[in-house]
């Protein structure tokens, strides 16, 4: 696919400073720029207080920026009509408690300018999509946190958005719910929707994002293709079974990042040692399950990057 020329979302030099009557003003976002293209999922990562949510709120007009440019589908984000084709799932979405799921979606549909018939059909479709088809007439006060999260996703998708902004979409969901969200995001990407996904769940980001932008202290600390950021140059990852309870000493001397789980040994070796390592596995009666370029987990990358910047990775 040839890369589209115009980004669906564009943020340039975003800055937010909270003025204080007493003491110094607090800078929540110092300088953040990002672009998301149609049919692409950009992951926005960072520890607590890095400026992720504030950046999203500035983009949505919920927080007034101190500086920077914000564009949605080529229009200034605060201008009229800019958010007409945008869906947003806030972190832990809240709804009026005394309405049913269908009534809530009816309100959001009307705000999106949809006609009555379209609201009814689309609401039904979206509630089915997020697994709440049987709960359309249930009052939201009876919804669990996970169900509210699913409803939040349904309202974000209701208007068939061209741009989707998800703030911690898997928050409060069980593993099946998390998988469903992942599938929905991938489906939206296939349909050409630009998705900006802010998350603490790095596995989720790894699973669905094409690129990531990592924020630290209100600035972009790293940005790029997830593969480029994570591939550990010169290392190959090997998985083998039937080697025994302990790795042979000669093999252990070559290997690093050794782990054993479910009868399978996992370790990394330098590229030039791959052949020798595989032969050692076979010599001791084992079988090779997988050989692939070693990739750092995003967690590891994140920790190293933040530690370099003097931030406690556990806060991420």
């Amino acid at each position: 696919m040839s890369p589209p020329t115009a980004p669906a979302l564009r943020v340039v030099g975003a800055r937010k400073q909270y003025e204080s009557m007493l003491g110094k003003p607090k800078t929540a976002v110092a300088d953040v720029s990002l672009e998301v293209y149609p049919g692409e999922v950009l992951g926005l990562l960072g520890p607590n207080g890095a400026g992720k949510t504030t950046t999203l709120k500035m983009l949505l007009g919920i927080v007034r920026p101190s500086g920077g440019e914000f564009e949605i589908l080529g229009r200034p984000a605060r201008g009229p009509g800019a958010r007409a084709r945008l869906g947003f799932l806030p972190e832990q979405p809240y709804f009026p408690q005394h309405v049913t799921a269908a009534e809530a979606l009816r309100l959001y549909g009307r705000l999106l300018g949809m006609d009555r018939r379209r609201i009814i059909s689309r609401s039904r479709e979206m509630l089915e999509e997020v697994g709440l088809g049987a709960e359309a007439r249930t009052q939201l006060s009876k919804f669990s946190r996970g169900m509210l999260q699913r409803l939040g996703l349904a309202q974000a998708l209701l208007g068939e958005p061209e741009v989707l902004i998800l703030d911690e979409p898997a928050s409060g969901l069980d593993p099946i719910g998390q998988r469903d969200v992942r599938n929905t995001v991938l489906k939206m990407r296939s349909a050409g929707t630009a998705v900006l996904l802010s998350s603490h769940q790095l596995s989720e980001v790894e699973a669905v994002c094409d690129r990531v932008t990592i924020l630290s202290r209100g600035e972009v600390a790293a940005s790029g293709d997830i593969g480029d950021l994570l591939n550990a140059a010169g290392r190959t990852s090997v998985r083998a079974r039937g080697v025994g309870e302990a790795l042979p000493e000669t093999l252990a001397a070559l290997a690093e990042d050794i782990a054993f789980s479910g009868g399978v040994w996992m370790f990394a070796v330098r590229d030039e040692d791959v052949r020798r390592a595989l032969e050692m596995v076979w010599e001791c009666g084992g079988s090779v399950v997988a050989v692939e370029p070693k990739r750092e987990s995003l967690e590891d990358y994140f920790s190293v990057m933040l530690a370099r910047g003097g931030v406690d990775p556990d806060a991420a």
């Binding site: 007009g61 009229p80 009509g81 958010r83 947003f88 806030p90 979405p93 809240y94 959001y108 705000l111």
Partner: peptide
Amino acid sequence: ERRTVYNVLSKDVR
């Protein structure tokens, strides 16, 4: 406070 306003103002609502 309950942030229900986010679902409204994130749409094209002034």
